[in-house]
Simulated assay, not measured.
Amino acid sequence: MRISAVRCFEVQGPAEIPAQEERQVGMLDIYPHFASRPPAGPRDHQTGVYVQVEEAGGAYGLFGPIFPETVPLIQNKLAPMITGQDPRAGEYLWDVMYRSDRHARKGYLMMAISAVDCALWDLRGKLAGEPVWRLLGGPTRPTVPCYASMLGYSHEPARIVARVREMIDAGYRAQKWFFRYGPNDGLVGMERNVTLARIVREAAGPNIDLMFDCWMGWDLSYATRMIERLEPFRPRWLEEAVPADRIAEFAQMRDAGRVPIATGEHEYTRWGFLQLLQTGGVDVLQADPDWCGGISELVKIGTLASAYGRHVIPHGHSVYAAAHVVASQPPVTFPMAEYLVRYQPMAQHFHTHMLAPEGGAITLPTLPGLGIEIDPAKVTSRRDL
């Protein structure tokens, strides 16, 4: 049994993508001409890029959508390293890809490794005739609880209240909202952030977990002042308040108040997460299997987190890989997954089988592999990259 080819391809097709109602604060917002950017507009089409790992007997593993920037890295660096190898030798293949380039430890090359690793797990599942969660040792529960991630939704008070209640009625027991303002917006912006937190808490009541995301758009001073203001609303966590590399600052934020701290969406590999754990500054690790090293590495990150008594709640760029890992691991370490309510239907637009929560939880997939297949009826053009 040998890998015969590693291919990347792009699909396009018509889609109704609504305009973003509001955008989140970001790192570039310290500059006024970037801070004034409007939310993204509507689109009438969708594009998706995927990686496919083929086995000589005709089976294939599929994963995506992936970042287009990773395609040349997959084709030029990783494919030659694993073509001809046994696709079942997962630890060997991951280590070879990791050791193949001294810059593979972070960034786009690790994201490329992640995509190939996830496609390899899909292939192994298909070869075994089992869903990936089974190959990983699961299930540990019949469904995967999810929280509603509210990126892109309006901050107009009446619409916030309506959306909060809509998510509760849909069965979600936790929600995450995204702050719009940062240090350059001064005290006025700070008060607007507090107003968002207040409206969401009042609409949700006392028995719904709430989280707030800053998408690396703050600095330590601003975050410390905001933590004091957020404490009355009892957030389950404050997410990515500062850029990912400011590891020591996460510990300072955690010491500054009683708001738990989350990060890890933009961290890579078990070694990066070990640094976060060793500083004692993070309560929740948000490793994304699409980027952190794949399914293989997310499981190892979970093992580290369990030794430190920390939760892993994967970032939700792709719900497929995260859901399979969460379903296979103990709930005390992996309590739930993220579901981007507005964006996951767009990300899964070309898929035959939509993986989405019902009643606030995802029913375990039963298809072999990850369950990602392209629906030809939704594709008007396909080209190899």
Rank of each mutant, 00 (worst) to 15 (best):
S36F: 12
D117H: 06
P87N: 08
K126Y: 00
P145F: 11
S114W: 04
F67Q: 12
A115F: 05
G64Q: 12
A112L: 06
Y50A: 08
K106Q: 14
V71M: 13
A89W: 00
V132E: 00
I82L: 03
L136M: 08
L62S: 05
M97H: 03
D95P: 05
G152A: 10
E55V: 07
S36D: 13
M110W: 06
D122N: 00
P39G: 08
V116S: 07
S149F: 06
E55K: 00
T83N: 05
E91Q: 13
G137K: 12
D101V: 01
D101L: 08
M110E: 04
R159S: 14
P32A: 15
G125N: 00
K77L: 13
P145D: 04
G57C: 06
W133E: 03
V132C: 03
V96M: 11
L73S: 02
R141Q: 15
H155C: 10
Q52I: 07
F34E: 13
E91K: 13
T47D: 11
A56D: 14
D117Q: 03
Q46W: 09
Y60T: 10
R99M: 09
Q85P: 01
T143S: 15
L78P: 04
T140P: 00
M97E: 02
G138D: 04
A79C: 06
P65M: 07
A56I: 07
M111R: 12
G84Q: 09
P157E: 15
V53Q: 02
H103V: 02
A128N: 07
G64N: 11
K77H: 12
A40D: 14
G125L: 02
E54N: 05
R43S: 15
P80D: 12
S154R: 07
A89V: 05
M111H: 08
H45M: 09
P142K: 14
G64F: 10
P87I: 05
D95H: 14
D95C: 09
K77C: 09
V53R: 07
L109V: 06
H45W: 09
W121C: 04
A104N: 13
Y108L: 13
E54Q: 10
V71F: 12
G137D: 09
R37W: 15
I74C: 08
A79G: 08
T70N: 11
W133V: 00
P39C: 01
K126W: 01
P80Q: 12
I66M: 01
S149P: 00
A115W: 00
R43K: 15
R105F: 13
I82A: 06
Y153N: 09
C146T: 07
T143K: 15
E156F: 10
V49N: 06
L62A: 01
C146S: 03
I82Q: 06
Y98D: 10
I113W: 04
L127Y: 03
Y147D: 06
M111P: 01
E54V: 05
G125F: 02
P157Y: 11
L62D: 07
P142Y: 09
S36E: 15
S100L: 05
P32I: 10
Y92P: 01
K77F: 08
T143V: 15
G41V: 11
G152H: 10
T83W: 06
I113T: 11
S114A: 12
D44L: 10
P68Q: 10
D86W: 01
M150H: 02
